[in-house]
């Protein structure tokens, strides 16, 4: 499915992920963790498709969950409910096992959120966001992104050139190969440094270094973005009020205390619900836009739609 949350302004994307990542890093209330984990998986599925997301989760996340959940009790012996003693006399406690599980869930959901973040927050958006605050470094960032593929291509050219004089990493024994590899890298470095001087000239020729440099971008903060920003702020404020009322308090050591679940008060339920809504924003945005296209399909026949898209792209 095509993601439409990423078409929002970079500030919206970045704000959303900052909030989500901070909450999922700083809160270890089981309810919050659970909601966050489920939403993260859902969004990962939307972005990467069932197959890829499932493979990622089963292959990397499940073993990690088990390892982290197991390792924690080995080093952490605090807690009041002692289950049994290890050979070296250290106790294994229920609290530490539960804490291990909580930690592993937290780690996993952070990583899944990051996998979504990596897809949405492209380098372009970063350059835009930091272009105003740290202009020189964000320019360096853009230049590095320009140079890396350029160097990779040149590396290929050089290694072909070296192949033609019988010096490639496929020629000779291990030692020779290593030496050829180093020679290729050395040629590349010289080439990169010497040719960069023209890049510097080109920057100066276009007035780099004048006072009052601005940062241009293709992004526009339109009404849709304003609306979304408002919604996110309101949800966040309500959530913070809920948090300050102690609905997300939790303690695992030495005895487990979890607020808000048993018994569930209205205010704690509302806090969790608001968080769920916040977590599901991207998925909801994608769902709505998919529904819209479905409706449009009935109005506009398929072919004209394609033509329109093409016109739209060309107009850009």
């Amino acid at each position: 499915m095509e993601d439409s949350f990423s078409t929002y302004h970079p500030i919206i994307n970045f704000f959303y992920f900052s909030v989500i990542l901070i909450i999922s890093m700083f809160f270890n209330h089981p309810m919050i963790l659970g909601i966050s984990l489920i939403s993260a998986i859902l969004y990962a599925v939307v972005l990467q498709g069932w197959k890829k997301a499932l493979k990622f989760n089963l292959l990397f996340m499940l073993p990690m969950l088990i390892i982290v959940a197991l390792i924690n009790p080995l080093f952490n012996h605090s807690g009041v409910t002692i289950l049994f003693y290890l050979d070296n006399g250290n106790p294994i406690t229920l609290e530490s096992i539960i804490y291990g599980l909580v930690m592993s869930v937290m780690l996993i959901q952070v990583i899944i959120w990051f996998s979504c973040y990596n897809i949405i927050m492209t380098s372009d958006k970063f350059i835009y966001l930091f272009g105003r605050i740290i202009p020189a470094l964000s320019l360096i960032f853009s230049m590095v992104l320009r140079f890396v593929p350029k160097f990779k291509a040149q590396l290929k050219v050089i290694s072909n050139g070296q192949k033609c004089i019988g010096r490639d990493i496929t020629n000779g024994n291990i030692l020779m190969r290593a030496r050829h590899g180093v020679t290729i890298l050395s040629i590349m470095v010289t080439w990169a440094l010497e040719n960069a001087i023209e890049t510097a000239d080109s920057m100066k020729a276009r007035g780099y270094g004048l006072k009052g440099r601005t940062a241009f971008s293709l992004y526009r903060f339109d009404n849709r973005d304003k609306g979304m920003f408002g919604v996110m702020l309101i949800l966040l404020v309500i959530f913070i009020i809920g948090v300050s009322m102690g609905n997300t308090f939790v303690q695992y050591n030495p005895i487990i205390i979890i607020n808000g679940i048993v018994p569930m008060s209205l205010s704690s339920f509302f806090t969790y619900f608001i968080f769920l809504v916040f977590c599901l924003i991207p998925v909801a945005v994608d769902g709505f836009s998919a529904m819209k296209w479905q409706k449009m399909k009935e109005v506009i026949p398929e072919k004209t739609k394609c033509a329109e898209i093409r016109v739209g792209i060309e107009a850009q």
């Binding site: 020189a136 320019l139 360096i140 230049m143 590095v144 140079f147 890396v148 160097f151 990779k152 590396l155 890298l185 470095v189 990169a192 440094l193 960069a196 001087i197 890049t199 510097a200 920057m203 100066k204 780099y208 270094g209």
Partner: peptide, 21 residues
């Protein structure tokens, strides 16, 4: 300190070499 074009280039090149490496 408003770095010069050449400084930016050198840092970018070295960083790119690191990344490519």
């Amino acid at each position: 300190r408003k770095p010069q074009a050449r400084e930016l280039i050198i840092i970018a090149i070295l960083a790119a070499i690191g990344v490519a490496g």
